[in-house]
Design a protein around this nucleic acid. Structure first.
Lengths: 334, 334
DNA sequence: TTGAAAGCGATACCAT
DNA sequence: ATGGTATCGCTTTCAA
């Protein structure tokens, strides 16, 4: 920029103004503007965003912290976030917490140091203090997919309760009565809501929830625990006639295990998966799933964040709960 | 930092030095160091990376440009890249080109303006000029998964030729002789190599490649074209007994179509997929696939890039071709 | 209309 | 050992 000012015998100010489309606003002569623009193009000048960011106090970058970018679900969301952000002139830097609150804390700090203008957080939900800190500092952020129910934050989540409700009703309407539920240990509000959705729906159908049919696996050891859980569920005295898996990777693992146990799906046990995975429609049998609206999740979270960053002028709704929908396939025998 | 210098009656220099662990190096008194460190911790000071970046000329950020973050394959690679980069103290900003060279050009520029220290590129491979530009400017970058064969760049790719060779041999050894090949229109070196791998392997087995058995779909319209392609392949006079799909999403689509056509896999037609997708082991039948070493791809690309950024001191090999491996499942009847 | 100059928050060189 | 100061590249205020 210095170069171009020098070579054109104009001031840095003029150059800056023109390059930021404030030429007219500041009444810089058309001639000068044209010269500057042309020179800039010829030497394909482009601003150094670090310098600009430092000066303006904005980096035009948003930080995305998720459990794992390679997870189908988050990858999809990340895709929509990026596309939407690009529309606002923003880029996104992502980081995976690997579901570890300590990592999350570090990442949030790191993002802040890097002066991201705002944060999209699929939080581990075990970091109250971090959330409080962000809130206190009025730092723009939105929770996505994960929620701190007791805190007043912006968020975009799906109706986990309602989603499982649909699944449970589906099974009940097909005559299944002994419905197992395989999920992860509480800690995540989403998981709590899913379990609740299951239990409450049973009650609505006058079926007393039986805790023996609910298997809560630990986050670390679910790959092993699911085997035992499944064996218990399909054996007397439980002998379920159907199972709801509370997340897609449990479904995959569970299905493998059911095959090993030689259980016929859906004949002996029907299954429903919360959340989709790549080829669930091609699986044998195709898996009835509760699908989350990934594009809406991603796009809304960016819209909300942008409004937050730009000082709340658009009046978008800052707390959104989206409806997931049931995709009926063959795994329930329907 | 100004604050802390003022409040402690020391110079900004001292503060900077201490905070960057150069206190001892520069012989700053232990006492001063301790005071600075404590003060910094108490007020949880953290450096502004924009300022630091501007001053040092490094952002400690790497840019990742891929066709699509939500694609299983790239999401996985992105995960490994991120993890590895974190180890080097780097974060990664990603952007999807959506397979459009124009987008890619823009993104490369944008990344450079944002002062990323280096670029990892899964290029559309139709942007020679961009590559030349990077090369000329000595900009640190590595191509990943995609290659400009005629250019001297750093890269990490898989042996596409060899991968398909394994698949083809597998089918041949199982007695299949009329092998169809469904792929995308050339443009990507990877696709060229896959096709070559197929053709050359046939020749090695003294089978004359028959162009009627090769279907090259367009990038835009493959979802429609694959139907016709498949119908032609399974009908007289082609009547293939097996099909290789050159990428995972073609496999998914193809399988759906084969079902619609009521073709029995693997009885009537065996299939092999280049590249895995989420639940391919659960599909009916489980799909024999050529699996790419995602973690190696991601990690090596970061190692190479870091060496490049830091001035080539580690002596890592800057061009790597990794071997994919065949995962034999049921879709070939083996 | 245009230009000079003061920051933005750090780093690093040069004195002291 | 410590402090002053120029500098990174750009924005923005204030005068001219």
């Amino acid at each position: 920029m210095k170069d171009i000012a020098k070579n054109l015998n104009v001031s840095k100010t003029a150059v800056s103004l023109v390059l930021n489309n404030k030429g007219n606003e500041n009444k810089i002569s058309q001639d000068t503007q044209k010269r500057i623009l042309e020179y800039a193009k010829k030497h394909n000048y482009a601003a150094n965003s670090l310098a600009r960011g430092l000066s303006r106090g904005k980096s035009e970058t948003i930080g995305l912290i998720i459990p794992e970018i390679s997870d189908d679900h988050y990858a999809k969301i990340a895709g929509h976030i990026e596309r939407k952000a690009k529309g606002y002139g923003y880029v996104v830097v992502y980081a995976s917490s690997n579901r570890d609150p300590k990592n999350e804390t570090k990442l949030i700090q790191s993002m802040i140091n890097r002066q991201v203008d705002g944060l999209i957080l699929a939080s581990t939900q075990q970091n109250s203090e971090d959330i409080d800190m962000l809130l206190e500092n009025n730092y723009p952020f939105v929770l996505v997919d994960r929620l701190y129910p007791e805190k007043e934050t912006n968020y975009v989540v799906v109706d986990n309760f309602g989603g499982v409700q649909k699944a449970t009703e589906h099974l009940l309407n097909l005559g299944r009565r002994k419905i197992g539920f395989i999920t992860l240990k509480p800690g995540l509000e989403a998981m709590r809501q899913r379990l609740l959705g299951y239990q409450e729906t049973l009650k609505q159908f006058n079926i007393k929830p039986n805790n023996a049919l609910v298997k809560e696996l630990s986050n670390e050891d679910y790959k092993v625990q699911i085997k035992e859980a499944l064996e218990e569920l399909v054996r007397f005295p439980n002998s379920v006639d159907s199972i709801i898996f509370s997340t897609h990777y449990l479904t995959s693992l569970g299905l493998r295990e059911l095959r090993r146990l030689n259980i016929k799906v859906p004949h002996e046990v029907a299954i429903v998966s919360f959340d989709e995975r790549g080829a669930f429609d091609l699986v044998d049998p195709p898996i009835t799933s509760i699908k989350q609206p990934g594009s809406e999740i991603g796009e809304l979270s960016v819209d909300i964040l942008m409004d937050e960053i730009q000082g709340n002028k658009s009046g978008v709704d800052k707390t959104r709960m989206l409806e997931p929908f049931l995709i009926v396939r063959k795994s329930c025998g329907a």
